[in-house]
């Protein structure tokens, strides 16, 4: 049976962000291209969420391992900034998963992040907007720390990035 590019996309849905293990690399929006060349070699192009993201190598190894399970001659993972990641690239399903896992999904933006967008975040537990940002820097580069005054719960937001 021959492998198609569609099969590769489907396989990539099994590869999770190691720091948010229910969110696939496809829903995270870091896959920017999939191509099968004439020698049946799979080329997957990915772009980092943050240029200093330490999970990049783990994701790229996991992608190679998963796509190798298909009938392809080889797998090459390219890291490219040609199509840069921004938080609007997270899919609707990805936003839903973030919310279910207790993260506030990033608000959609139009290329610039304003301070008021960061301070007006709905609590993922009780949906209250009576929240404040404690710090724009959280446990990973892509998360900020917030506090909900209604349910008195600290929570994290997946940061909007332009």
């Amino acid at each position: 049976m021959t492998t198609t590019e569609h099969d590769i996309w489907q396989a990539l849905e099994d590869v999770m962000d190691p720091e948010i293990p229910r969110l696939s690399v496809v829903d995270l929006g870091v896959i920017t291209g999939v191509r099968l060349d004439d020698n049946n070699v799979a080329h997957v192009t990915m772009t980092p969420t943050f240029s200093g993201c330490p999970a990049l190598h783990v994701m790229s190894d996991d992608i190679r391992e998963r796509v190798k399970m298909l009938s392809v001659a080889d797998v090459v993972v390219h890291v490219s900034y040609e199509i840069p990641w921004n938080s609007n690239r997270i899919s609707e399903r990805g936003r839903g998963i973030l919310h279910e896992m207790g993260f506030a999904p990033p608000p959609k933006h139009d290329g610039y992040i304003k301070l008021d967008v960061l301070s007006d975040v709905a609590c993922p537990f009780c949906n209250s907007h009576n929240t404040t940002m404690q710090s724009p820097f959280g446990p990973t580069l892509c998360r900020s720390i917030h506090y909900c005054h209604s349910c008195q719960q600290a929570f994290e937001q997946f940061k909007p990035v332009a």
Binding site: S51, S80, Y81, P84, Y112, K159, V161
Partner: peptide, 17 residues
């Protein structure tokens, strides 16, 4: 230019801080 378009978004958080 490609790298700059990526990094400028990250640095917004540095200057904000």
């Amino acid at each position: 230019a490609q790298v700059a378009r990526k990094i400028r978004g990250e640095i917004q958080y540095h200057t904000m801080h």
